[in-house]
């Protein structure tokens, strides 16, 4: 369960060590405001299993779309806000009991709301988001229920970017999403479109 976050930590340490060998940007380096739009499929693992629905697999497939707005001053760090939408699981299943033999349709969604910090060295960006998720459930079992709840969580992300134009670059990103209270770990390979909104 802790292997993946530990691996991410080691990756960050390694990147940071290598980045440290680079001279920091001088005071003449401009400041940037950067927007990131990221999309990709997402695999989720319910680390404590899924006792219900009966027989459900603990791993599920969904997708995510993340938006980050980052302020990147004249050193290596950038800070900003991260949000978006994640589909953790959507499925139809039958509950074998006396109340009904009808099928249930249910889905679980998450909207991360986080403070994000990233380190940008040349084309590599490694970052972490701290905050929480607004988890939303949609449950259609005879009648439809919809409910939400905020829980703390984290996102790790690492990307490599190719510059397409002066203000536009395209990246390949790995995103790891962790909802600690609920024990859901999600991994998403993503396409990361970065655009420099403002340079000063």
């Amino acid at each position: 369960m802790r292997a993946i976050p530990s691996a991410v930590l080691i990756l960050l340490c390694t990147c940071a060590s290598r980045a440290n060998a680079q001279d920091a940007r001088s005071g003449t380096v401009p400041y940037h405001v950067e927007a990131h739009i990221e999309l990709g499929p997402m695999a989720s693992d319910f680390l404590r299993g899924r006792p219900l629905p009966q027989g459900a697999s603990r791993t599920t497939m969904g997708y995510d779309a993340i938006v980050r707005l980052m302020w990147h001053p004249d050193h290596l760090l950038a800070v900003g806000l991260l949000s978006g939408y994640q589909l953790l699981v959507a499925e139809n299943y039958v509950v074998p009991d006396s109340l009904s033999s009808g099928s249930v349709h249910a889905s679980l969604h998450a909207m991360p709301v986080m403070f994000d910090v990233s380190m940008q060295v040349r084309s590599l960006e490694v970052g972490v988001g701290l905050g929480g998720y607004i988890l939303t459930t949609m449950l259609d079992d005879l009648t439809t229920a919809r409910a939400s709840r905020f829980e703390l969580g984290t996102i790790f992300h690492a990307a490599y970017h190719w510059r397409l134009q002066d203000h536009l670059s395209l990246g390949a990103e790995a995103l790891v999403s962790y909802m600690a209270y609920r024990g859901i770990l999600a991994i998403a390979p993503q396409l990361d479109i970065e655009y420099d909104l403002l340079t000063y």
Binding site: L9, I10, C13, A16, S17, N20, A21
Partner: peptide
Amino acid sequence: SGLLLLWSSGIVRAQ
């Protein structure tokens, strides 16, 4: 983790 950081710093200093 702290030791890891200190270890990594050794590489940097050597460079």
